[in-house]
Design a protein around this nucleic acid. Structure first.
Lengths: 128, 128
DNA sequence: GGTTGACTTCAACCATGGTTTAAGTCGTAT
DNA sequence: ATACGACTTAAACCATGGTTGAAGTCAACC
């Protein structure tokens, strides 16, 4: 079984090592082995978990929510339904957030159009 | 010219009054008049500005960025190009963020599919 | 004329999500 | 043997974006 150092994990997900240590301390990355010098060794499974954590983080799930999710994974099969519901609820929340952002872009586009027009008008007005 | 109270402004944009006071203190809402009892009176223009601020906030522009934008508005016509560029840059950043979220949803969907399958399998396995 | 409701100010407080710093350990290359 | 780079810990520090509390003012209703 291949293992990875913290710098490899950090590089793979484009995050600082300090963030990974912080996540471990918060309980998002349980059971990370160490080599005899005390350095973290990430298994393939833990890299995958970190990938999942990044998906959740990228979609603005709070640390506390991610922690709950990881705790349910550790608890085993009996939490499958809860995990499924959590992911489904989260998916919905993310789609809502994207919709809000998309709507807000319309307001921004309106500003862009107005500024572009005003700048054009000012150019044409020059020298008249 | 119609004017609005802070509670009307809060209701219109679904935010707490405390947030509006906070935004004013941060310089996002300049020149708000008061009645003789010291209560804020929002003009139609200021309500519109608050609407724009909410668009920027909903798309995760930091307060400092919104402040810069408002300062440029106050500075007048000479900042039109800068405002246009800012809105264009922001638009691009928002689209990138939406793309990242959309990609992350794929990871979540994968989990949803796996959990749904595992739950199904467990059901069928029961009683065998 | 007293109470109620909507507002005011200012400062203190809070959660979130990390980042930074200091001091130290280990393995390897010179 | 020593210097270097990669790593470790724990605690302190930081920015962001508000929220909350105390104490007070004012207009209007009973």
């Amino acid at each position: 079984m291949n293992v990875y150092s913290i710098s490899e994990a950090a590089a793979r997900y484009h995050i600082p090592e300090s963030t990974i240590r912080y996540y471990e301390k918060k309980g998002l990355l349980p059971f990370i082995e160490r080599d005899k010098a005390g350095r973290r060794l990430f298994s393939e499974d833990q890299m995958t978990l970190l990938g999942t954590i990044m998906c959740l983080k990228n979609t603005n799930m709070p640390i506390s929510g991610i922690k709950q999710y990881v705790d349910w994974i550790l608890e085993g099969e009996s939490t499958l339904e809860r995990r499924l519901k959590m992911m489904n609820d989260h998916r919905k929340a993310v789609l809502d957030e994207i919709a809000l952002m998309t709507d807000s872009i319309d307001g921004i586009d309106y500003k862009i159009a107005r500024y572009a027009k005003q700048i054009q008008e000012r150019k044409h007005g020059k020298g008249e």
